[in-house]
Structures are given as C-alpha cells and as structure tokens.
Deep mutational scan, measured.
Amino acid sequence: CHSECLGNCSQPDDPTKCVACRNFYLDGRCVETCPPPYYHFQDWRCVNFSFCQDLHHKCKNSRRQGCHQYVIHNNKCIPECPSGYTMNSSNLLCTPCLGPCPKVCHLLEGEKTIDSVTSAQELRGCTVINGSLIINIRGGNNLAAELEANLGLIEEISGYLKIRRSYALVSLSFFRKLRLIRGETLEIGNYSFYALDNQNLRQLWDWSKHNLTITQGKLFFHYNPKLCLSEIHKMEEVSGTKGRQERNDIALKTNGDQASCENELLKFSYIRTSFDKILLRWEPYWPPDFRDLLGFMLFYKEAPYQNVTEFDGQDACGSNSWTVVDIDPPLRSNDPKSQNHPGWLMRGLKPWTQYAIFVKTLVTFSDERRTYGAKSDIIYVQTDATNPSVPLDPISVSNSSSQIILKWKPPSDPNGNITHYLVFWERQAEDSELFELDYCLKGLKLPSRTWSPPFESEDSQKHNQSEYEDSAGECCSCPKTDSQILKELEESSFRKTFEDYLHNVVFVPRKT
C-alpha cells in the first residue's frame, strides 16, 4: 500500500485506493498535508475557505447554543480562536489581540433580562453583547459592586439597553466600559436606550469621564423622579442622539420631579488639616426662599486615587461607600458681607490618608415646582503625618564578641513616609551569675543571650482551647457569634421535631 494509506488498500502504491488515510483526505486521495488554498479540518480532512465560511455563517444565523462559528488559524479551520487571539470578521482569520481579548457573548432569543446578581454573573467577562440587555433589578445585597464585577467589562451592545423598574439602582456607572450601543435591534418605538419607572436612579454616568455613542435609535425617559433633566440632556449631547427624540420621548413632568437638581456650584473657602482632623468651610448658599434650606450634607471617604465619582458603590438597598454628615444651616444675616460661612470639623480620621470630599445642599421643593440647590466639586484632601507606631517583631542576635545583629519589621501604621529608623542602645553591667558559677561542674549549661522565638506554653494553649472559665478566673470563653447562636437554635429545633416524629412513629394507638 501507499505510504499515506492506513489499515489496508485495494490497489498497491495508489493513494486513492486506501481504506483510511494516515494524515489527511483531499478529493478522494490521501495526502501528507493540505496544500494551499485548503485548510486542515478536524485533523483528517482538507477543506477550502468557502466550506469553513459556510459553517461560520450557519452557526451565526441559527443562534443555536453550542454550535461553533468556525475560524481560520495556522492553516486550520477550527471552532474558535485560541487564547490571546480574536477573529477578523472580513476573512475569519485569528489575529493577536492588542491588550485583553474581546469576548463576544451571543444571547438566546436576542435579549437577556438581568433581574438578579445570579443572572448578571452569566455575563461575567463579556466585552461584546450580541443582542439586547434588559435591566430589571428590584433589590439585593452589595448590588453596585456585584454588577460592576460582572457587567463592568461590557464595551458594546449590538441591540438596545433597557432599564425598567430597577428600584435598587442609583447610577449606571457599573457599566464602566460601555462605549457603544449599535441599535441594530430596537425596542418598540425605535428606541435604543429605554429608561422607565426607576424610582431611585439619580445618575446615568459621570459624563466628564465617560463617552457613549448610540449609532441608531432614540432615547426614552419616563417616570424617573430623581433623575434630573440636565442629566438626560447631557446624554443626548454626548451620545449623538440630540435631535432624534420626539416631543413625548422625554417626559418633562415625570423626570426629576422629586430630585434636588443642583444648578449652582458650592466653593470651599477654608481648608485646614491635622493628622486626624480636617476643618472645612464653604461659601454660604440661600435659595430664593431661605426657609427652603434644610441644611447641608457632607460626604467623605478614603480615596487612594483621584478618580472618585459621587455615586460609586451606591445602591438604593443601603450600600453606600460614603460617610454622610448632616449639618444645620448657619444663622442668616441681613448683611451679605457678614454672612457666616458654614463648615464642619471632621474628626477621627487616619493620618497621612487622602480623602475625597464634597458637600451639597438639602432643600425642600418650592411652590413653583422649581428645584434649587448647590453642590461642590469633589475635592481631595490629605491629612498630615504623625509619629508612626512601633516597629514590629524586633530580633537581636550576637554573632561574635563585638557585634549584635538587630532586625525588625516595619510598623503596622507608618502614618507617613518613613525615611529612617533611630536605634538606641545602652551598655549593661555583666551578670554576677557568670562569676559565681563553678565551671568545672559536669552538665553545666552556660547562660545564653542568643534570641529564641517566643512560644506559647501548654497552660496558655489549654486556656485558649477551654470553653469555660478556669477556677483562677484568668480566662473566659469568647462570646458566641450570631451565626453560632442561630445554628444552635436550628439544631435544637431539629432535635425537638425529630423526637416528636419518633414518638408518633414508635407509639401507635392500640386498636379498641
């Protein structure tokens, strides 16, 4: 048989008469490798580009789960590009990614509803959504962080984005990388972005840091009482949809009607710091009717980097990364020049730590249904340095008659930039024990000054392991946590139920 035959053949030295091919099969003959313009397919066939392209389009058009959109890589027609490569849609070739590779997620039936953290986790790592997304989240724990972890990498949506009755959302900033909504599939009414009845939605994105392009379709905003109209108009300008909307697409009466839409800028007039305090004062603000001013709200939190936005980490279910302080308005003076500047002394802060701070007014709604208010920009203030805590785990070892090696770990709280350490030492008198000992005694162990690591005695271990207080009263049991108490109650309830079950099964009433 021919060298490319495997198993047997019907005619000697003829690659077209093989029972099976050793390498690849091409047009009725066995070959060692697939010549151009053919590609290896499933490690035994040679196919042309049209064959591989037909497989790709067949799966793409069917949208069946589990099928493969075949691509070409290293002269092979394979189910998908290997790690580190992405497909070129024009020629199906796998090309190296520039940075992290995109991950295209194809949605069944063309859309997916995100109504819980669990459903959001199914899209973790996706960068391109081939379909439409509907966000409908009523509640949950730590929602802002969970949504950002699972949806934060999405850069492109081919269909539309719909935010509907998501009472738990305060902001859409968890879509931190969303840059493009194509609108290839539109919501009824030709809408590519749809926001309806979101009672706590206050911000779409921080438009000073976020760009969003909507290729096709219109915007729809109705019944978002805490979303200011200025935020919607800003989205029109940034996304390129200005002029597409009709009169009733953006409701003037049901958007922002319960919001404090600040239209003035508060400026800080005085800032002073110490290692654990920050004193702030800002310019006074009074609405047209000074009785509408209820006070100020001061927001602050630790910020290692200057990239904080107002609604980071917030949701309507209680999660809030900001510390909020309510401040009463100052006494009002008739003389504008003698107006008191409101302020606040922030206490209990960490030394040498940068804080993000902003302040906003708290006002009631005027009778004319106009909203007044003022808010400052987010500023960054760093507390002063102070003395560091003591170095940890000092170790001293003498390696000769004239040297001592000293080692330690950095302090747990540096409280500033540590530039150097101060080492103090003092000579001590020799131990009298060394002169009084009889060095001729056998088995004498000389006193040693070398360091030995501390260890816990058996008594201390027994005390720590004991669940009861000892007789001397030195140790006591740790208080039980809520989960331990709940577990004990469940076990007790189970024992009672099981005992009742045994009584009912074992003891049967005697027939009379």
Rank of each mutant, 00 (worst) to 15 (best):
N334Y: 08
D249T: 11
L331M: 07
L153S: 13
G295A: 11
E237P: 05
N190A: 09
Q199E: 14
D197R: 05
A120Q: 08
E148Q: 11
V117N: 13
L266G: 01
L294K: 14
D257K: 10
K103P: 10
W286V: 14
G240Y: 04
D335S: 07
T273E: 13
N307K: 06
V381E: 08
E156I: 07
P388E: 00
E187Q: 03
S338A: 08
I250N: 14
L406S: 05
N190G: 11
I181Y: 00
T383R: 00
N320V: 10
N190I: 03
S402I: 05
W352Y: 04
N320S: 07
R176T: 14
D289H: 03
G152H: 15
W352G: 11
I181R: 00
F358W: 04
I129L: 11
L252F: 06
K360C: 12
F174W: 12
G343F: 08
I232N: 00
R291L: 02
F268M: 12
P394H: 13
D292K: 01
S158E: 05
F290L: 06
D249W: 14
R347Q: 10
I157E: 00
P394Y: 13
N340F: 11
L186E: 06
Q339N: 12
I135H: 05
K177Q: 10
L108Q: 04
W282L: 07
F175D: 00
S389M: 13
F311L: 06
Q403L: 12
C126K: 01
L153A: 14
S333W: 11
C228T: 02
I250S: 10
N248W: 08
E302M: 10
S171T: 07
A316M: 09
R202P: 01
F220D: 03
P329T: 10
L169M: 06
L345S: 11
Q245G: 14
G125R: 07
P351E: 04
K209F: 09
S208L: 04
K375T: 14
N320A: 09
S173G: 09
S119T: 11
N387Y: 08
R291Q: 01
W408T: 01
I379V: 09
I135E: 00
I250E: 15
W286T: 10
R332Y: 10
L201I: 08
T364S: 03
W286P: 03
L298S: 02
T213S: 10
Y380H: 00
K103Q: 13
L180C: 10
Q258M: 07
I278H: 00
W322C: 01
I357T: 14
V238W: 15
S173C: 11
H222E: 02
V104A: 15
S319M: 06
S119Q: 12
S338W: 15
K407V: 03
E187K: 06
Y191W: 08
D257H: 08
L204M: 08
S166M: 04
T113K: 13
P336I: 08
P391Y: 00
Q339L: 11
S239K: 08
Y372L: 04
Q245L: 09
S269A: 06
A144P: 06
T386S: 08
T185P: 14
I188E: 05
F311C: 01
Q258P: 02
L147D: 02
P329M: 13
I250V: 15
M346Q: 05
Q245F: 11
V363T: 05
Y300W: 07
I154P: 00
Y372S: 02
K234F: 11
N198W: 00
K375A: 09
R281W: 04
A356Y: 00
D292E: 03
K162I: 07
P304F: 08
L147V: 02
Q203V: 06
A195L: 10
Q121H: 04
L161T: 03
L143W: 15
S274H: 15
Q199G: 06
K162H: 11
P410T: 09
D384C: 09
G189T: 08
W344Y: 15
C126A: 02
G152D: 11
L147P: 01
W352M: 08
F174K: 01
G256E: 03
K350A: 05
V170Y: 03
E146L: 03
R176C: 04
N200W: 14
W282M: 10
D367Q: 15
A195E: 00
R291S: 01
M235P: 00
L279S: 06
V390M: 10
I379L: 10
Q339S: 06
D315M: 15
R244A: 09
G256A: 03
E122W: 06
G110N: 15
A385W: 10
N200A: 12
D292M: 12
G295W: 09
C228I: 03
K226N: 04
S116Q: 02
F174N: 02
S239E: 03
T353P: 00
K253G: 09
I134R: 08
D289E: 02
I181K: 00
E236S: 09
G217P: 03
G295T: 05
G125H: 15
A144H: 01
D289M: 01
P410K: 01
W322N: 03
I214L: 13
V390T: 12
I163T: 09
D328E: 15
E187H: 08
I181T: 01
K162A: 05
I214N: 09
G217D: 02
E264V: 08
L169C: 15
L345A: 07
S321T: 09
K350S: 07
D115N: 04
I232P: 14
N248H: 01
L196R: 05
G240Q: 15
T353I: 14
A144C: 01
E302K: 13
G183Y: 01
